[in-house]
Amino acid sequence: MITTVVAGNPKAGSRTLDAATRLAATLTGADPTNIVDIVELGSGLLGWGDEKVSAAVETVAKSDLVIVASPTFKATYTGILKLFLDQFATGDGLRGVTAVPLMLGAGPAHAMAPDLLLKPVLVELGATCPAAGLYLIDSTYTTDTRIADYTGRWGSTVLASARDEA
């Protein structure tokens, strides 16, 4: 199974990236095959046809399972993640990909953001999102049981979908 983590944080090597990598490893029992730390794509995100951006889009589109992660900025996902997602064709850019929306925030006020804001965009791009999204508190995700709890509840559903889509 090809698993890819997409981190939409404007800071390289962020907690968002770490949380998404932890979730991917917990779901699959292995480190992700690919990591796309969007901020490393730079100004190529602002237009069309950049080689690094196109390669990252192709990597994600060829994945079986993608964890799409963002910190909560202004009650939604980041602009840098939006710029990256805009590179995919509407309707089929993520066809055949199972996606898990993951967002981090400072408190529980935006706990519905992965399902209300990020999941619809992923579905619009053709991804299958067979389970609830995951919201983590950025100061406690390394010590609480939310990733393990999510995997216990949704892991078999997510993995079955990823295998079916492959």
Rank of each mutant, 00 (worst) to 15 (best):
L41F: 10
Y141H: 09
T21P: 04
R22D: 11
V53L: 14
D149S: 08
E58L: 08
S43K: 08
T140P: 06
L159A: 02
Q87M: 11
D144L: 08
P10Q: 10
A148T: 11
S54L: 08
V123D: 09
L125K: 12
T59S: 07
V6P: 00
P108S: 15
F73P: 02
A19K: 02
A61C: 06
D149E: 15
K11L: 14
A162F: 12
L23P: 04
G8W: 00
D138T: 10
P108A: 15
S161I: 11
V121Q: 06
P32D: 05
A7H: 03
P10Y: 03
T90P: 04
K82L: 09
I67A: 00
A56T: 04
G105M: 09
A24H: 03
K82R: 13
G44R: 02
K62T: 13
D18E: 15
C129W: 13
A166V: 01
E51D: 15
T98I: 07
F84C: 01
T151G: 08
G126Y: 12
T78M: 06
F88M: 10
D138E: 15
L102I: 05
A75E: 14
D64Y: 01
V60G: 00
A132H: 05
T157N: 05
A99T: 02
A127P: 10
S156G: 03
G29P: 02
I35H: 01
S43Y: 07
S161K: 11
